[in-house]
Simulated assay, not measured.
Amino acid sequence: MDSTDSTESTDSCGSGRPAGLLSIGTFARRTRLSAKALRLYDRQGLLTPAHVDAVTGYRSYLPEQVEQARTVALLRRLDMPLAEIAAVVRLDGERAASALDGYWAGVEERHAAQRTLVGYLRGRLSGRSTAMQGTFEVKIVEVPETPVVSETRHLVSDELPVWISTSLGRLERAAAEECGGITGPPFVIYHSDVSEESDGPAEACVPVADLEAARAWVKERGRSQGLTARMEPAYRMAYVRITKAQVLYPQILAAFDTVEEWITREGLVPTGPCREVYFADWDTAGPEDEVCDVAFPVR
Rank of each mutant, 00 (worst) to 15 (best):
R128S: 11
A105W: 03
V89N: 02
L91M: 12
L121P: 04
R95W: 06
T135M: 12
V118L: 00
G119T: 11
A99K: 09
Y103A: 03
G127E: 02
G134V: 04
V88L: 09
D101G: 10
L117G: 00
W104F: 15
V89G: 00
V88W: 01
V89M: 06
R90I: 07
Y120N: 00
Q114P: 01
A87I: 04
A99Y: 04
L125D: 04
R110T: 11
R90N: 12
E94L: 13
Y103K: 05
D92Q: 15
D92I: 00
A96N: 07
E109L: 15
R95F: 08
Y103V: 00
G127K: 05
T116S: 15
F136V: 06
G93T: 00
L121E: 08
A96E: 07
S126M: 02
A96C: 09
E94R: 13
T130N: 00
V89H: 06
D101E: 15
R122V: 12
L125A: 12
A86L: 07
A131G: 07
Y120K: 08
A131W: 04
T135G: 02
Q114S: 09
D101V: 12
V118E: 00
R115Y: 01
F136P: 04
A87E: 14
H111C: 03
E109C: 11
G106E: 15
H111S: 10
G134T: 09
V118A: 02
V118K: 04
G106R: 14
A96R: 11
